[in-house]
Design a protein around this nucleic acid. Sequence first.
DNA 1: TGAAATTTGAGAATAGGTTCTCATTATCGA
DNA 2: TCGATAATGAGAACCTATTCTCAAATTTCA
Lengths: 124, 124
Amino acid sequence: MARNTKQRAAVQEILDSADGPLLPEDILERAQPLCPGIGAATIYRTLRALRESGGVREVVTPDQRVRYEKDGPHHHHFQCRSCDQVFDIGGCRRAGTPLGARVPKGFQVEEHEVFLFGVCAACA
Amino acid sequence: MARNTKQRAAVQEILDSADGPLLPEDILERAQPLCPGIGAATIYRTLRALRESGGVREVVTPDQRVRYEKDGPHHHHFQCRSCDQVFDIGGCRRAGTPLGARVPKGFQVEEHEVFLFGVCAACA
DNA sequence: TGAAATTTGAGAATAGGTTCTCATTATCGA
DNA sequence: TCGATAATGAGAACCTATTCTCAAATTTCA
C-alpha cells in the first residue's frame, strides 16, 4: 500500500542529510525546490507515517517546538540562541545515567536527554 | 500594586515546597484545599506574574508540556515514565558544557539541560 | 495501457492550553 | 471604616500546530 512518491522521497532525503532535528516548516521549505507545490499536509502526513514505521523520531526542544530527526544512535543536541537551529552532538557513550548525575535512592534511570545552549559556529 | 492575596500565597507556597516542576493543573489541584474555589485563570495569572518578576521559571519537558518551578541553582530533572511526575536531581556542578559532550569547533556552550527518564521510587 | 486505489494539495476543522473579559470581591492605605 | 483599585472566578475567546476532507493527480500492477 505504501507508494513511492517523490514527496515522501524528498522528506526522507531531507531528514537523512540534516545535521540536526528539523521543524515541519523547515522540511517544507527544503522540500519546495525538490517537489514544487508540496503542501504542509503532506509533510505532516509523511512525518507521521515515518514515525509510526519507526524510521523517524520526534524531538521536543526546550523552546516547546517539535522537530523531527532520523532515528539513530543516542546523541545530544545543541540549540543556537541566535538562529534557533538545533544540531546533533556526538560523544555520549552511555545510554543510561549520564556522568555527574546523582539519582535518588530507588530511582531507576533508563535513558537520558541532553540539550546544550549557546551560539553556533555560523552565528559566532 | 501587587497585593497579597491568599491565592498568590498558595501558589508560592506550593512551588516552594515542590520537589520538582509542576503542571498548572497540578498547582490548581494542590491549591484547592488552601483556597477553595480558586480557578485556573488565577493560577495562570499568578504564574505569569511570578515568571515576569523572576522568581519562577518555565520548564518544558520532553513530553511537550510546560511545568513551573521556583527559580534556583542549576539542577537536572528526572521524569517517571509510569506516573509522569518530574523530580529535581542535584549533583551537577558545571553550568556550561556537561561531562562527556564533544562540542563541534566554533560552538560556544553557555548552558545545558538534562532530563533523565525511568521509574521513580514510588512507582518501582 | 488501463483500472483500482493510494497520495496529494488546499483549505476548513480541530484541539488543548493559555489568555481575555467583566462583574464581583478582597486588599490596603488613609 | 471607607474608598480606590487590584485581584478573582467563570466562561468565552484565542492561538496555532496538527489533522481532516475531498476532488484531482499519481502510482502500481495486471
